[in-house]
């Protein structure tokens, strides 16, 4: 029934807009039913722990390695910039603030989307394609409660921890490059950091950011899997969409949160 010519373009535009809003609606409905089932997980927290293992622990290596390198680059760039002003003693401050406020939450969320989010989507999508979800329904087990909710919660809880680990190892990376290789004073590196990083303004705001990212990343991953067309092509598309949409959402959200948190009072 496709109409040809300009009218057809309008038809396509309208159809894709409708499709977008329908997906948005389905996404919110799924989110609400997941949130409504979270209390039921309390007596069965073992399910969540299992998922924290596969979502969190398996992302650990990539977080550690990336954190180390990002920290080392920060140490290098920070040192060359600061040394022109004779301010290389502040290297610790620069490295720590950059990581805790921005790079820790954001880069950890991007890595999380690539490592854990895509895996979640693929797993749930395949469970749908192989009738496992509908089999559970026929066994009177609610797949949203049994499968989706624990995965969502695990992602939400894991990301702040992963971001914290990323920042900590990054600070070590900056230390290795700045102090060990380039000769910044070790005492200055740590003490300046200690003086200028504020627990509430910097650390807690960073944690809030990564909680927000964890929420969005897990929501997108779980929804894309659950909403995937139940074929191998559908699942592979959904996996790609998870990574792309999560990355965009994290970067956009980061700007908004940064403007709200760190703007002049």
């Amino acid at each position: 029934m496709a109409i040809k010519g300009p009218a057809g373009w309008f038809q396509a535009l309208g159809a894709s807009a409708l499709g977008f809003f329908e997906r948005l609606g389905r996404g919110h409905l799924l989110l609400f039913s997941i949130l409504g089932r979270l209390p039921a997980l309390v007596p069965r927290f073992g399910l969540v722990v299992q998922q924290i293992y596969s979502v969190g622990v398996l992302s650990l290596l990539i977080i550690l390695v990336s954190g180390l390198f990002v920290g080392m680059v920060l140490g290098l760039q920070g040192y060359y910039t600061l040394v022109d002003f004779g301010a290389e003693q502040s290297l610790g401050t620069v490295v720590a603030l950059t990581l805790v406020r921005e790079l820790g939450p954001v880069v950890a969320a991007l890595l999380f989307a690539g490592r854990a989010g895509s895996a979640l989507t693929a797993e749930i999508g395949l469970m749908k394609a192989t009738e496992q979800l509908s089999g559970m329904e026929m066994m009177a087990v609610d797949p949203i409660k049994r499968t989706l909710a624990p995965r969502f919660l695990a992602g939400f809880l894991s990301l702040p921890l992963l971001a914290a680990i990323f920042s900590a190892i990054g600070i070590m990376g900056g230390y290795i490059v700045g102090v060990q290789l380039l000769g910044v004073d070790e005492g200055a590196y740590w003490s300046q950091m200690q003086n200028s990083v504020n627990f509430w303004d910097d650390i807690i705001n960073g944690v809030i950011k990564s909680l927000a990212f964890g929420f969005v990343a897990s929501w997108i991953a779980v929804f894309e899997g659950y909403d995937a067309v139940p074929t191998s092509e559908g699942v592979s598309r959904a996996t790609t969409r998870t990574v792309v949409h999560t990355s965009l959402a994290v970067l956009g959200l980061d700007f908004i949160l940064t403007a709200l948190m760190f703007g002049e009072p």
Binding site: L126, T130, Q132, S134, M139
Partner: peptide, 20 residues
């Protein structure tokens, strides 16, 4: 419905075993 389904067993055409 869920209470009723507990009293029905269904054998799926594909088996639908949980792969994990």
């Amino acid at each position: 419905l869920y209470r009723l389904r507990q009293r029905m067993g269904m054998l799926f055409q594909s088996g639908a075993l949980l792969t994990d």
